[in-house]
Design a protein around this nucleic acid. Structure first.
Length: 700
DNA sequence: CAGTGAGCGAGCTTCCGCTTGACTT
């Protein structure tokens, strides 16, 4: 008897084919094969939200292969991922291929020979409740996306979009920008005492004054305290050593991998996923193509038993038994929201150390593999142990404190340390030994002025983290969602920070006004609660949609009426038109905002928005201005354009190229180095372009 | 590397979540 097994990923198909015998053919369907049509609404709202499914454009060949293969076999087993989307994929395959055996569904959530063989022995029915939950999810997203987006086309610009996930992502970024601009900076001071002990210097910070938390708001308060401490005696009032354990982080999920790759390797989510895909598909190591990591789109930290055993053996051999806990470390995947279809992201063969396979990998593949490997190995190692030393010093009613962490046992930190967002820091360092009651001599008291800081803008890493915490989006969509909001011009990325654009702000403001519940951060969580009920068979999917659509249709009507009335007054620029004297206003065009004459269409004068710099153009003496290219990339040109056509990608400096005389610009390199480069493409000193004038490292 | 908006009207844009390549910044 011949059996056809269908899985989602072609890589998975190859692996599984090896586990099963000659009687099995394994093919992949590459995800969904049917979906709602792209170019029409595809949902019959009047008749129980009946969806119109069609095969996905561009998947003709795959679908034909599956159909042909299905005719050659006696039996079909559907082995799509064991989660909500996977169940729906199995159902669509069943429908489309006309699978007649009712027990056609098999499930496994780790790709091991044992798990796969066991699954094949126990085929079962498709879980139609799960399929219904997926349909409700799919249709709801279609209702929201395809009803909201056209409102934006009408009011703002064609091609714009809104949706349950992307609009909330932009909203988070806008809300943060608001917090930043509302932030009121406050001055505060800290006081540090440098105290002489018999064996060295103790550095202690002021923490309390007369038993209350030290709060120094201004210079006057600092001066008062300095006067009070001038003649004071400093005496050690407490010495305390406490042991602290720090456990390893769990192995990677998609979200945590993207965050760490962003923080430590400066990779975008998209680049990280591309590279991970290459590692997953396999690299030729010694002539044999081997998949180096497990599947990279996962929300689970679960690890196959065999892999835990293998890594424990590896740790014991390579690092010794002190580094190996008695029992395997256990991790749980968050708040029960995980679908757990796949394992955590880990190396498939822990024996392939990063060093060992480095020769077979590109630099980027190596760096990401190293990150994944180290994170995984560390996750099964012993906790690190620190001694936390705390010394308290009293002087004239003021309490100073010094703390230091001394590493007693490295444990997992031998292999891996978690990256930190900028701004986070940790106490470290050794402090000199002192004894309680010891009198200390004050070497110096130094005061430092600080200002409270607003919360930081989102980075890709922190945005993904926020979305995951709110259970918005899935492992397969974090990276594409970020691409979408960037491509739509709703947000811009500078360095690593994400800013809302005026357009993004406008869209979010409109959506917040007319559809407050949909762009609410809790909307998805509410939806998921209903989907869970559908999966459990306690609610009908049509009912869930009906309850949503009733109020939604009303707000939609209201929005259509009210939005038509809104007249968006163009913002005044304060300048007047050089051609006709009428005021110039900001308008929204294909490439973002620009300046246009308010006398349009009589006067067609337009100007780009430029940011002046303090740099002179050495060719004509004009001022260099910053502009944006069509693609949104910043460049620099002479303010006298088109009379002067000097341009450069990087910020020009007032210095000429020794080879061709063109004005040099300065480039910030990745390593924090700056260097002067010649922007002239025809410069005879091609080699020198990159090397010229090594700059000083940027200070951090 | 420097562009852009109105209106006419035809034809189109758009969602989220599964998968990979085949494209080009």
């Amino acid at each position: 008897m011949k059996t056809l097994v269908i899985v989602e990923s072609p890589t998975k198909a190859k692996t599984i084919e090896k586990f099963l015998g000659k009687q099995y053919t394994v093919k992949s369907c590459m995800g969904h094969i049917r979906d709602l049509p792209k170019s029409s609404f595809g949902v019959d709202v009047e008749h129980d939200f009946t969806p119109h499914y069609i095969t996905i454009r561009g998947k003709g060949d795959i679908i034909k292969t599956l159909k042909d293969e299905s005719k050659k076999v006696d039996r079909i087993l559907l082995a799509s991922d064991p989660d909500r989307e996977g169940e729906a994929i199995a159902w669509h395959l069943q429908q489309y291929l006309g699978v007649d055996n009712p027990n056609c569904r098999i499930r496994f959530n780790e790709i091991t020979g044992e798990a796969v063989k066991k699954a094949v022995r126990e085929p079962s029915k498709i879980d139609i409740d799960k399929v219904d939950a997926q349909q409700a999810r799919r249709i709801l997203d279609r209702l929201v996306g395809y009803k909201l987006s056209p409102l934006l086309w009408k009011k703002l610009k064609k091609g714009l979009s809104a949706g349950r996930v992307q609009t909330v992502a932009v909203r988070l970024i806008c809300d943060r920008e608001q917090e930043i601009s509302d932030f009121i900076t406050e001055e505060y001071w800290t006081l540090t005492a440098y105290l002489q002990t018999s064996s060295g210097e103790l550095v202690a910070k002021l923490v309390k004054v007369d038993g209350a938390k030290a709060e120094l708001a201004n210079r006057q308060q600092v001066d008062d305290l300095l006067t009070r401490l001038k003649e004071a005696a400093f005496c050690v009032s407490a010495v305390n050593i406490r042991e602290k354990k720090k456990s390893a982080a769990p192995p990677f999920t998609t979200s945590t991998m993207q965050q760490e790759a962003s923080r430590r390797l400066s990779l975008t989510a998209r680049k990280t996923m591309q590279t991970a895909q290459q590692l997953y598909e396999g690299i030729a190591v010694g002539g044999v193509v081997t998949g180096l990591i497990t599947y990279m789109r996962t929300d689970s930290v679960r690890v196959a038993e065999g892999a835990v055993e293998a890594v424990r053996q590896y740790i014991g051999q390579r690092y010794g038994k002190d580094y190996l806990p008695n029992k395997p470390n256990q991790y749980s995947s968050g708040k029960g929201r995980t679908q757990d279809a796949h394992e955590a992201i880990r190396p498939t063969q822990v024996e392939y150390s990063p060093q060992q396979i480095k020769p077979y990998l590109t630099t980027q593949q190596y760096k990401l593999y190293k990150l994944i490997w180290e994170r995984f190995v560390a996750s099964q190692m012993s906790a690190a142990i620190f001694d936390v030393h705390t010394v308290e010093v009293m002087a004239a009613g003021c309490l100073f404190r010094a703390t230091g962490n001394v590493l007693k046992f490295a444990g997992y930190t031998q292999v891996y340390n978690e990256g930190r967002e900028e701004g986070e820091k940790e106490d470290s360092g050794v402090i000199v030994p002192v004894t309680k009651g010891e009198a200390l001599i004050l070497n110096k008291l130094s005061e430092t002025q600080h200002f409270t800081q607003p919360p930081p803008r989102y980075s890709e890493a922190s945005l993904i983290k926020a979305l995951e915490e709110l259970a918005i989006g899935r492992p397969s969509t974090y990276a594409p969602t970020i691409d979408t909001i960037l491509n739509r011009n709703y947000v811009a990325r500078e360095e690593k920070q994400l800013f809302p654009t005026e357009l993004g702000q406008l869209v979010v403001d409109m959506m917040k006004e007319f559809f407050p519940n949909i762009v609410d951060v809790d909307f998805t969580a509410e939806m998921e609660r209903h989907l869970d009920e559908v999966e459990e068979g306690r609610e009908q999917w049509v009912e869930v949609l009906r309850e949503f659509y009733g109020p939604f249709a009303q707000t939609l009507e209201h929005a259509e009426r009210e939005m038509a009335k809104i007249v968006i007054e163009p913002e005044q620029s304060g300048e007047n038109c050089e051609k006709c004297g009428k005021p110039m206003v900001y308008r929204l065009g294909r490439y973002g905002r620009f300046l246009a004459c308010s006398g349009f269409p009589e006067c067609r004068n337009t100007k780009a928005i430029v940011t002046p710099t303090n740099v002179k153009c050495l060719a004509c003496g004009g001022n260099i201005v910053q502009r944006k290219s069509k693609a949104g990339r910043i460049f620099y040109g002479c303010g006298n354009y088109p009379d002067c056509t000097y341009v450069a990608w990087d910020m020009p400096v007032e210095e000429k190229c020794p080879s061709c005389g063109a004005q040099l610009s300065i480039r910030n390199n990745r390593g924090g180095q700056t260097q002067k480069i010649c922007p002239n493409r025809e410069c005879p000193d091609k080699e020198g372009q990159q090397k010229r004038g090594k700059g000083r490292p940027k200070k951090n």
